[in-house]
Simulated assay, not measured.
Amino acid sequence: MKATSTPMTQPLREHGRYAYSPIVERPQFNWPGGKRLAFYIALNLEHYAFNEGIAEDLVPGIPAPDVLNNSWRDYGNRVGAWRLHKLFTDLKLPVTLLINSALYDACPQLIEAYRAQGAEIAAHGRTNSEHQGGFDEDTERCLICDVRDAIATHEGARPAGWLSPWIAETPLTPDLLHEAGYQYVMDWCMDDQPVWLHTRSGRILSMPYPQEINDSAAIIGRQIGAEEFADMIVDQFDEMLLQSQEQPLVMSVALHSMIIGQPFRMRHLRRALEYIAAQREKCWFATAGQIASHFTRHAR
């Protein structure tokens, strides 16, 4: 009888940043006021070089000088972000502002207005015309620290949070963020609760950041209409409010001023956020930094 052999199997490659943890098996805790659902708005304010580097485009394939897409992106900081500022103020919704540090030179009045509103200022790289994917360690460290220091200079304190431009990391990004003093990172989208990531010198908190309830991925990437996107926000809120009876959860909405700041889209966003704001007694409205701080203190 011919002998059979079993092929040698190798374990699948792992990132080593976190272990598997079923959400139904985790310790219970509450958000402030005994709330079970935390809600935050992440507004991306981005600055791009003219016809250089990578870019978010409305219409593909336009030859340089691409006036159409460049000016469309500029609309976000010149108009859309200001309309959103009024909407958030009117609804008394706190905001986490994810900024390219180049905005301090490009449109300082915009950051000043959100600062006066009480927004949290978090880091989103230097510009979205680049990402750090492929950077060597020293180059990436310089980027992360330069952005940190630019925000600290203007805000009087280092940013607690980081979102990589284009969600592009190197294998060392969490290590370098932790070593630069960041408290949380928003690149990883694997959970509805904050999760500790292992780094080579400690740990950094991964904050839930949505890749589906995100106007860039939904409206530009999947060509979903503004009405459907607003319905997605409402459905996400209602379902997560229900699920939070079992475990405390975090819901976020990720927005980009040049996309959702267009009036016809903002009309539908207004409807969704008015619906959520009317139920403020049921959930905790906070910034990403406030959520990260509470989790760090109460849900180790």
Rank of each mutant, 00 (worst) to 15 (best):
F39I: 03
F39R: 02
Y40K: 05
Y40N: 15
A42N: 13
A42H: 05
L43S: 10
L43P: 04
N44Q: 10
L45N: 04
L45Q: 04
L45I: 11
E46R: 08
E46T: 00
E46P: 12
E46Q: 14
H47M: 04
Y48L: 11
F50G: 00
N51V: 07
N51W: 05
E52M: 13
G53C: 12
G53H: 07
I54K: 15
E56Y: 10
E56D: 15
D57W: 08
D57G: 08
L58T: 02
L58E: 14
P60C: 09
G61A: 10
G61T: 12
I62Y: 02
I62R: 02
P63R: 03
P63D: 14
A64S: 15
P65D: 07
P65I: 08
L68T: 15
L68R: 10
N69R: 11
S71D: 14
R73Y: 04
D74Y: 03
D74K: 05
D74H: 08
G76T: 01
N77Y: 00
R78P: 06
R78V: 01
G80H: 09
G80Y: 02
G80W: 03
A81Y: 00
R83T: 14
L84P: 02
L84I: 03
L84W: 00
H85Y: 02
K86T: 15
L87W: 05
L87S: 08
L87V: 09
F88C: 10
F88L: 11
D90T: 15
L91F: 12
K92C: 10
L93I: 15
P94A: 12
V95L: 07
V95N: 09
V95F: 06
V95P: 07
T96S: 15
T96E: 03
T96L: 05
L97Q: 02
L98A: 13
I99F: 06
I99W: 05
S101L: 07
S101T: 14
A102M: 12
A102E: 11
L103F: 07
L103A: 01
Y104G: 03
Y104C: 03
D105F: 02
D105L: 02
A106S: 06
A106N: 10
C107D: 05
Q109D: 11
L110E: 01
I111G: 06
I111T: 04
E112F: 01
A113R: 07
A113F: 00
Y114Q: 00
Y114E: 01
R115A: 11
R115K: 11
R115G: 10
A116C: 06
A116D: 09
Q117A: 14
G118S: 07
G118A: 07
G118T: 05
A119C: 13
A119L: 04
A123N: 11
H124I: 06
G125F: 00
N128C: 14
E130W: 07
G133I: 01
G133H: 12
G134D: 13
F135G: 06
F135Q: 06
E137M: 04
E137W: 05
E137P: 01
E137L: 12
E137G: 07
T139P: 03
R141C: 05
R141V: 05
R141T: 14
C142W: 15
C142D: 14
L143Q: 09
L143S: 02
L143E: 13
C145I: 15
C145L: 06
D146C: 01
R148F: 01
D149G: 08
